[in-house]
Design a protein around this nucleic acid. Structure first.
Length: 465
RNA sequence: GCUCCCUUCGUCUAGUGGCCCAGGACAUUGCCCUCUCAAGGCAAGUACACGAGUUCGAAUCUCGUAGGGAGCGCCA
């Protein structure tokens, strides 16, 4: 059997972290089994679906690197097909028209709730044939009245529902348009989906869908209902926490492979392993190893993983991302080799590429001021003289490399009988304007000889004025 | 209200009857390393929701309770 999975978002908002995790699991499962991953846009809600949201979803998937093999398919382009299937069910007596008004249904529900019952349609039009004229009807699926539906879920195990709990759901509205649960069934059937992997908020929809599939003469696919992702506080994801577009994570400086690594570990694990490359997760992932319980989104761990990915990736992987973030800070087309050096020396002191870019701005812009507190602390009376002397020695240096610079500076400190810090901090302050940077030798090496000496001279001027 | 689902450190998780008075990771705290900040190393604390039962033995099996979530739309 060829595995076919699908990700079926509805374009009523942006693609958020929960949706991305569902997409990831579908994608991983398809990739792992050399199957097909289908993207389907569930846009039957004409009111709330927007083209912007569709584009957002596509962009988010692309950024994450979750490529699909078929689609995107749009449900709005398949209305003819749904209509045919509805007619088929109607003709076969597996569906029927219901002429209840919304008010009538409303009243029925209210009474049931008042009686402490589960609100559901009582099937009053199931056998009636006295159709009124001039009244638009909805079409309802004729759900079996008794017996049970057994859903064999890969993550939850066997879940049993009684047919008596289910009612005859509407599959076509009075304007003729098909409804969600029905479209899903027809689509999954037509697209020959073998594994339906989705959020466990759909677990309760599954028995109805399975019944419709059966009525259409199909064998149900394998179901896997994934646990939800909650906000950091354990409550449902809301706009306040993770419910932002996945593109926000790009803007915040996260690597897609880190985000995916973080998400794959939410509800899935492989022993004690925390770090996974994309290649490793596609090789190791399996839905049978997915947990049942919901998990809270934790940015701290995402950050840690992001840094791990930055540190382990080849610098050439990070360079274009750093360039993108620098560009957003108004710094254009820096030298490739220099960027690579910056990545190597800065990645262990930044959690995100954006942070790396921000920490590295001083490489491109000479300081316009110096951290006052630090100046008071580190630029003591004897510093200007020491600095001037260091400058003279550095000016003599032929090969401007980290080790060469290190030799000069530490040799000088030893000769003067002072701790390296006494010299390094003022130097750092002079070239960076602050007290945080890579090791001073590496910093000066990246900066270049002329720029380093110019900045020192300028600082000396300011501090002796 | 009814139906279904879930429940191991603050968080993500390992664990499928004895290897567990529960392991790893993030976070936290302390120490080491150190030219700053980090990274790294070492160490510490903190968890099987509760109650019964099955068993020689239970985080692991059964039942109940509590708490949380989802569904019950001419929304998806």
């Amino acid at each position: 059997m060829i595995v076919r999975t699908r990700f079926a978002p509805s374009p009523t908002g942006f693609l958020h972290i929960g949706g991305l995790r569902t997409a990831l699991f579908c994608w991983l499962y398809a990739r792992r089994h050399v199957g097909t991953f289908v993207l389907r846009i569930e846009d039957t809600d004409l009111e709330r679906s927007t083209p912007e949201a569709i584009q957002q979803i596509l962009d988010g998937m692309e950024w994450a690197g979750l490529d699909f093999d078929e689609g995107p398919f749009f449900q709005t382009k398949r209305f003819e097909r749904y209509k045919d299937v509805i007619d088929e069910l109607l003709a076969a007596g597996k569906a029927y028209r219901c002429y209840c008004s919304k008010e009538e249904l409303e009243q029925m529900r209210a009474q049931q709730i008042a009686r402490g019952e589960k609100p559901r349609y009582d099937g009053r039009w199931r056998e009636r044939t006295d159709a009124p004229t001039g009244v638009a009807a909805v079409v309802r699926f004729k759900n079996p009245l008794d017996g049970e539906v057994v859903v064999e879920d890969v993550v939850h195990g066997r879940v049993v529902f009684k047919n008596s709990e289910l009612d005859d759901l509407i599959i076509a509205r009075s304007d003729g348009t098909p409804t969600y649960n029905f479209c899903v069934v027809v689509d999954d059937m037509d697209m020959q989906i073998t594994h339906v992997i989705r959020g466990d908020d759909h677990l309760n929809n599954t028995p109805r869908q399975q019944n419709m599939l059966l009525a259409l003469g199909q064998r149900p696919p394998v179901y896997a209902h994934l646990p939800m992702i909650l906000g950091p506080d354990g409550a449902k994801l809301s706009k306040r926490h993770g419910a932002v577009s996945v593109l926000q994570y790009r803007d915040d400086g996260y690597l897609p492979e880190a985000v995916l690594n973080y998400l794959v570990r939410l509800g899935w694990s492989h022993g004690d392993q925390e770090f996974f490359s994309i290649e490793e997760m596609t090789r190791l992932f399996d839905i049978v190893d997915v947990n049942k319980s919901a998990s809270a989104f934790n940015v701290e761990k995402l950050m840690w993983l992001n840094q791990q990915h930055m540190m382990r990736a080849p610098a050439s992987r990070i360079v274009p991302v750093l360039r993108w973030h620098l560009d957003r800070e108004g710094i254009q087309a820096p030298d490739e080799a220099q960027l690579e050096q910056i990545v190597v020396s800065q990645r262990e002191r930044a959690k995100t590429v954006r942070e790396m870019a921000l920490n590295s701005l001083f490489f491109f812009r000479a300081p316009v001021s110096y951290d006052e507190k630090a100046v008071r602390k580190h630029v003591t009376a004897e510093v200007p003289a020491l600095l001037a002397e260091t400058m003279r020695e550095l000016a003599q240096l032929e090969a401007w490399t980290g080790p060469g610079i290190h030799q000069v500076i530490s040799g000088f400190a030893v000769a003067k009988g002072i701790a390296l810090g006494k010299l390094a901090q003022p130097l750092r302050l002079a070239v960076c304007g602050g007290t945080v940077s890579p090791p001073i030798d590496a910093t000066l090496a990246i900066l270049g000889k002329a720029e380093s000496l110019a900045r020192m001279a300028r600082a000396l001027q300011v501090w002796t004025a």
